[in-house]
């Protein structure tokens, strides 16, 4: 028989337990993040032998900026001396190395993104575990991981050796990398598709074609499109790097002036790249607004620039 005393003692311990577990429950994210931050600090400390270098770093940075970087040398936006520019004066900037480099990098990035998507989409449809048995998805994942495992600059070196200097090796390198990277993003989007449409499809007896192109791709279209735009921007940024090994684009000029220690010209190129990346970001916001569900609510914006602003600001700016 249970005595009263015992049961009340049990009750107290129950109460304590629920208080402790509720404290743990409400603070577990802070504890987890705190542990991760602490771990990172410890690991960094074990790799750095002299923190004093950090103090020197800022001095070095100021000296470097004052003596070499600033002000940027905007002559890179003026027409090259050779070949002679035949454009009318108002658009002679299109003969400049900055313009030629940016356009070539954009072209490489665009072509590589499109080719990469065309190749990666079928592979990622095979790699999705909710659509295929493991013996299909595993080899497909292997292919994607292999093309992703080397950074695009290593692929660029490889293709420069194979097909020589120039944009072609840049396109090939970037396409291979895009297949791996975009493919991973795509199969994750596909695996995130909710169950009910897939179940309806399975019950109806749909084949692979209908399920993939009729259900999965339209259902995950938002994700697929924003990933595609992200990949284009990513490829543009990396296009500057692969140019350094001779695979075409603006990186060629950056590498050239780095070799001659003309850092003020290099910084001009970097600022131009930064501006183009910002512009691409705005374009991608605009493009995505056509595909997201929020777009249904905020569209149509009162004017073309409305897509760059949050809807609350549009309301403020609207003529009454």
């Amino acid at each position: 028989m249970k005595s009263r005393y015992l049961s009340s003692a049990e009750e107290t311990s129950d109460v304590q337990e629920t208080i402790l577990s509720s404290i743990w429950f409400s603070s577990r994210w802070f504890v987890l993040i705190g542990c991760l931050v602490f771990l990172s600090v410890v690991v960094t400390n074990s790799m750095v032998d002299n923190w004093g270098r950090l103090a020197n770093g800022s001095d070095n940075l100021f000296a470097f900026i004052n003596e070499s970087l600033w002000p940027p040398d905007w002559s890179v936006t003026e027409p090259q001396a050779y070949p002679v520019c035949t454009e009318p004066e108002w658009r002679d900037f299109t003969c400049s190395t900055a313009w030629i480099g940016v356009i070539e990098t954009l072209k490489i990035a665009f072509v590589a993104t499109i080719f990469g998507m065309i190749i990666s989409l079928p592979i990622s449809l095979l790699a999705a575990r909710n659509l295929n048995p493991w013996w299909v998805s595993f080899p497909a994942r292997f292919i994607l991981a292999a093309s992703r495992s080397l950074p695009s600059i290593i692929w660029a070196i490889f293709f420069v050796i194979l097909v020589g200097l120039g944009p072609l090796s840049g396109i090939l390198a970037m396409t291979v990398y895009t297949v791996g990277y975009l493919g991973k993003l795509q199969y994750e989007a596909i695996e995130g598709v909710s169950r009910p449409p897939l179940e309806a499809s399975e019950a109806m007896g749909h084949g692979w074609l209908e399920r993939s192109f009729g259900m999965i791709i339209p259902e995950s279209a938002n994700g697929l499109i924003s990933q595609l735009i992200f990949m284009f921007e990513y490829n543009f940024r990396h296009g500057t790097v692969i140019g350094i090994v001779g695979a075409g684009g603006i990186g060629y000029y950056i590498n050239l002036y780095l070799k001659f220690l003309q850092y003020d010209k290099v910084i001009a190129y970097l600022l131009i790249i930064f501006i183009v990346v910002l512009l691409l970001d705005l374009v991608s916001i605009a493009a995505r607004s056509f595909f997201t569900e929020d777009g249904d609510v905020t569209r149509p914006p009162s004017s073309w620039w409305g897509i760059f602003l949050p809807s609350a600001m549009i309301d403020l700016l609207k003529p009454k």
Binding site: P196, P197, L198, E199, A200, S201, A203, M204, G205, H206, G207, G214, M215, P218, E219, A221, N222, F291
Partner: peptide
């Protein structure tokens, strides 16, 4: 294929 029609409680439509 096509023999069985299913109207799920959660519908399973392609929302987009």
């Amino acid at each position: 294929r096509g023999e069985l029609g299913y109207i799920p409680q959660r519908l399973g439509l392609v929302r987009h």
